[in-house]
Design a protein around this nucleic acid. Structure first.
Lengths: 217, 217
DNA sequence: ACACCTTGGATAGCGTCACTATCCATGATT
DNA sequence: AATCATGGATAGTGACGCTATCCAAGGTGT
């Protein structure tokens, strides 16, 4: 198929597809003449993935490129590729690093992971994000004690077990890696919105038992 | 204290504080003369909250204004304020709305919430976000079956119960609302990064048992 | 008292990001 | 042969979160 058709079938404008091609998020089409290229179902699949990552998962375009490159990198083993791919995911601007709150947060994060029996990898971006979020909470005066954090950790462990099992159902290695990226990223909004919905439900029950009520607008 | 001191103690530049004042994220200082204003500890607290919401929670500035306005709105009851505040939180760009995937997603979201015994409020932004995330998954060919979604829902319910209990520990109503906002938003990165860490842990265990391994940044 | 400095308010600019609109030459189509 | 579509390059757009520069009024030190 041509660019125009790829655009129609994906619902993404040709201009945007060209942009993704330029940015290396999409492999170039197969050149069929000096001025035309042919795209296939694989391009369509990839385009949909990119779209979902960028729009739903809010992954920056540059990051998506790295993640997808890691997924496709034939030279590395499965686990490294997975690690590189998922590790590249959300940088998240981190505040200033060396104050008291940050140190306490670092310790808390360590204790929590130790308690859960996880390896602590300080270079893991997720670890960095965790520490910076805990720092923010501490600076605001919320304590972040073990008893508050543990439920989150346990729940995360449960979900991760579930996620990995789901990923293992795919057999082709690249498919599996893509699934890992897609499920990691796309289940984030699912999880967050479910938490918000559950909060609304719980709040309604506690504060106004028996009455139906919306959320506002 | 003056602007300069507020800036020093919060680590936020005076230019940025002025910007927040302009945007209504921070109440104006008490005018002590035609050209000077006095700020107090409350301003400092509020500034830190804004900072955490915007930088760590990635809440858009305009949204933060609405949320904080709802928190402070004396005319409404506690629950409406909470609802309005939390509902305003993350809009999230939603893809095109009326295709097959969206309809299926809407049904799935409904089934899930029904199954969990939650009220379904279609106007809730979290519901909209949920549907749009599920649509994306469906479009990518991931099924989103009940068995996959239920664990997420159950986990969300568990966390929400925990969250609300935590919030109830605060007694002043405004403090409580602020805590609700702060904890809702700031525990999101905590939850997400814990999930990523748990995934890394689980993946390492399954794919390379017994070996330590980083994430390869 | 008088020069000097700071303050808060207003306005305009900057850098990033994800697109998007415009051109253009080539080559396909009728 | 005339027309049109295609893909590639380049520049522009709009939103966002600041940031830099002015300015006049007012406080401060000697």
């Amino acid at each position: 198929m041509r660019l125009a058709e790829l655009s129609e079938r994906s619902g993404v404008s040709t201009a945007t597809i060209k942009y993704y091609l330029r940015e290396g998020l999409l492999p170039p089409g197969e050149r069929v003449s000096a001025t035309q290229a042919e795209y296939d179902e694989e391009h369509l699949r990839r385009l949909r993935l990119v779209r979902a990552l960028v729009q739903v998962g809010r992954v920056p375009v540059a990051t998506a490129r790295e993640v997808l490159a890691a997924v496709a990198d034939e030279s590395a083993d499965q686990l490294s590729r997975l690690g590189t791919a998922v590790a590249a995911l959300p940088p998240g601007p981190h505040g200033p690093g060396e104050d008291e709150a940050a140190l306490l947060a670092e310790r808390r994060a360590g204790e929590l992971q130790e308690r859960l029996g996880w390896r602590i990898v300080r270079s893991n971006p997720a670890h960095v994000t965790l520490v910076s979020a805990l720092s923010a909470l501490i600076r605001l005066g919320y304590p972040c004690e073990m008893e508050h954090l543990l439920p989150y950790g346990e729940v995360a462990a449960r979900l991760a077990g579930h996620d990995i099992a789901l990923i293992e159902e795919f057999d082709a290695p690249t498919t599996q890696l893509e699934a890992a990226v897609a499920l990691t990223v796309l289940y984030e909004p699912v999880l967050l919105s479910l938490r918000r919905l559950a909060q609304a439900e719980e709040a309604t029950r506690r504060f106004r038992p028996g009455t139906g009520g919306g959320t506002g607008d």
